[in-house]
Amino acid sequence: MTVSKWALDKAHSSVDFSVRHMMISSVKGSFNEFSASIEADPSDLTTAKIEFTIELASVDTRNDDRDNHLRSADFFDVENTPTMTFTSTQITKKADDEYEVTGNLSLHGKTNQETFLVTFEGEGKDPWGNLKVGFSAEGKINRSDYGLSWNAALETGGVLVGDQIKVALQLQATKEA
């Protein structure tokens, strides 16, 4: 294949996260609104250009009170910083279909370099002849690196919300004409 533009298929993609709660369990959530600009050769992602944007107000943990707290100034402050963005800067092949994608992650007014493990899941044509590709990505970020430091101490020791956020993406894209 050659480098092509790919349109994100949001109906077949997801952006999920999890974080430790009370040091004894994990809370999972998703972002329902996101977009991407992808220029890539799926058979060799090392030359890809990837920009990804998440609308933070679309956070969904299946609990309205928690979601509203996450949107507030204690966490995302969506009125002042409505999006989280990622722009790739370096992509290194680790195995046949696995890559380390490093880039600049901007959240809550701060930008840090983060690396995610990305797997090319394959390609195929849909029933209408459109070429589709699939990718999965996972990684971890520390929310305190982005100034998201709200927390509450627990009577038994420890804190209410963990610092490390696990991120998991499932992405499907369609080759643009």
Rank of each mutant, 00 (worst) to 15 (best):
K5H: 07
I141W: 02
K166C: 10
D97Q: 10
D163Q: 01
T174S: 10
S30Y: 08
L160Y: 06
I50R: 04
N104A: 15
Q172V: 03
K140V: 10
S25F: 07
I38L: 15
G157T: 11
L160N: 06
A168F: 12
V133K: 03
E79H: 13
D64G: 05
E114Q: 12
F34E: 14
E79Y: 13
N112V: 03
F52I: 09
V161C: 05
L171F: 03
G29D: 11
V15Y: 07
L107V: 10
D97V: 09
A152Q: 15
I141G: 00
V101D: 12
S72L: 08
A48N: 12
F86Q: 14
Q172I: 01
N151E: 04
F31W: 10
V3R: 02
F120C: 02
R62D: 15
I165L: 10
L117I: 14
V101T: 09
T53N: 01
L148P: 01
N130F: 07
E55A: 04
D97G: 01
E39R: 04
E33I: 11
R20D: 09
M84S: 15
E55L: 06
T46K: 07
D41S: 08
A7R: 08
T53I: 09
G29V: 15
H108T: 08
G157I: 12
S25M: 05
A73S: 15
F86K: 07
A95T: 11
